[in-house]
Design a protein around this nucleic acid. Structure first.
Lengths: 141, 141
DNA sequence: CCTTGACTTGGAGCGCACTCCAAGTTTGTA
DNA sequence: TACAAACTTGGAGTGCGCTCCAAGTCAAGG
């Protein structure tokens, strides 16, 4: 059992966000119960750090601040909010999968466009891959 | 050969962005040479529409406005900028792939967290999937 | 004790990508 | 020809997520 603690700067380095952002997150209610030493400086425990790392994942996947705050608030309220939290994470998982398939569709378009460049084709050419691009863009498959 | 043309409202519906956004994109240099009818109203050709659809894909995948503008400007400058454009699209493709793998890593975390909820576990439990979550968060694989 | 650097707070400022508004013009239908 | 709906422009406003700043406090080495 480790009881190591970290300054805000260390916490920032360990989670890949800036110290300013950490203060902002705390103020915004995304971080629960970060304790202070006698001088009022924040001390991040490794538990805090893992909570923070999860918050960072939610943010990286586009969950809005206000929704992360709601999730953290539900955690704070205790076990009776588990169903609610689970359904939030389930919807968020769905959103992530949607983002991924959107990205994948767009990537295909970019790759077909690159194929055109590699073949030295203009968009007006009557070529298989030009047509493929057009139909991808029009969404007419 | 079709020579159909579209109003700004129709163009908006056909590409999934608002008419306001279309005007904004034109002002910002993301749309090249949208012509007007006698009364000064925009007329989108299907060529315009496909250019626009490509711009929308770039935006959907997070390319900043200023970079899309640069790409469009290079297109306008003609064939001698093809190498430059190709390399822009190649880097952007790389960025899209990075986004996708980031999303995929984050999705794994969310899914393991959900597994914990389904098993009724708290983050402090000494359980296989709790540990898996912790090591995913710490990135210690 | 003194200094230097890290930390604290509240609040202002910023960059981005829209989004909306006002005032006027054009278009299409009755 | 009258009128509503759709369009035009320039510019202001909005929401988001930080990011920076000033003024002061705290911590650690010499």
């Amino acid at each position: 059992m480790t009881c190591e603690e970290f300054s805000i700067k260390e916490a920032a380095q360990l989670t890949g966000v800036s110290a300013d952002t950490l203060r902002y997150y705390e103020k915004a209610g995304l971080l629960d119960g970060i304790s202070r030493n006698v001088g009022g400086h924040r001390r991040f425990t490794s538990t805090d750090l893992n909570g923070l790392r999860f918050v960072v994942k939610l943010r990286l996947t586009g969950m809005p601040i206000r929704e992360v705050r709601q999730y953290v608030e539900l955690v704070r309220q205790g076990d009776h909010t588990m169903d609610h939290r689970r359904s939030m994470l389930q919807s968020h998982g769905d959103r992530i999968r949607q983002q991924m398939s959107e990205l994948s569709r767009c990537l295909e378009v970019v790759e077909v466009k690159l194929e055109m460049y590699d073949l030295g084709l203009r968009p007006t050419d009557e070529h298989d891959c030009t047509k493929r691009l057009a139909s991808l863009l029009e969404g007419t498959k």
